[in-house]
Design a protein around this nucleic acid. Sequence first.
DNA 1: CAGTATTAAGAGTATTTTATCTTAAATTAA
DNA 2: TTAATTTAAGATAAAATACTCTTAATACTG
Lengths: 145, 145
Amino acid sequence: MKVLSKPSEYGLRALMFLVTKGEGKGYVNIREMAEELDISFHFLTKILQSLTQAGFLVSSRGPNGGISFARNPQQISLLDVLYVLEGQDFLSKCLLGLPGCGDFAPCPMHNSWAVMRVQLRNLFEHTNLSEVGQSVQLERLRLSP
Amino acid sequence: MKVLSKPSEYGLRALMFLVTKGEGKGYVNIREMAEELDISFHFLTKILQSLTQAGFLVSSRGPNGGISFARNPQQISLLDVLYVLEGQDFLSKCLLGLPGCGDFAPCPMHNSWAVMRVQLRNLFEHTNLSEVGQSVQLERLRLSP
DNA sequence: CAGTATTAAGAGTATTTTATCTTAAATTAA
DNA sequence: TTAATTTAAGATAAAATACTCTTAATACTG
Ligand code: SF4
Ligand code: SF4
């Protein structure tokens, strides 16, 4: 069961990295970041661009440029980020991959699954980047499972 | 968020089909099944072979051959089937796709996610093929989302 | 100004997943 | 025996996803 796509996974890892490594500093260099997280620089760049466009990050070109949070990471929920990286519908799919039959003839799992999706949504909504970033150790961010 | 792979999805659709179409009849022809479900015959065949090898189905070659449940579909849970089609670890992955850090330094979501995984496991465990098969209308099984 | 570093768009490659096709053997009904 | 049908293994193709590379513009620092 795959919850997140690789781009989402990398995006979150980068944001978590930024929480701990970006404290105090101004901008964090993307190239260094890519190296420390063991992610392709160009690939990471694209992901971060979408996060900048979405307003989570601000970027600066030129020497000592890089990215930085546009607002306090305590005020960015994982749900906000995942809506951008996964799309708005990432929590609204049928458990079995069938076309939506739930409204008229729900299978025995439909309602339970709907509840779980809400729970998951709440979990992502009430977890902010700051807290996950602080709780996951840096070394873990560069190891892929 | 993709819960099931295509092979799992197709396998379940085929089993659900077999619940309603297989009543009374002896063996159900795989070729017809593939046509009615709009799934490639060869692809479906491979999936069903693994379900036969796993002991859920019995098959018969020759004229009027096909597949049939080896045991009452009421006694086959979705969990049983998914363990075969998805692998044993399909409900044990990190929400964020990170390597297992939960035991030592769990992030704020780890425990909630663990609970949800158990809930989902229970849901799959306590839902049997017969009930889902009966509740989902046949036309739905041939439409892909 | 010179140099550095991001932004941007997109081409291109690689890998994985999904799907199709081929061939041949085994089994069964009639 | 003959035709129908699954089994089996594997080659191949297509599609989706993941990743890399190229180029050029832009903006900042010193
Ligand atoms: S009723 Fe069941 S099969 Fe249909 S959309 Fe809901 S969860 Fe999926
Ligand atoms: S602690 Fe959080 S990030 Fe780590 S394995 Fe558990 S859910 Fe994943």
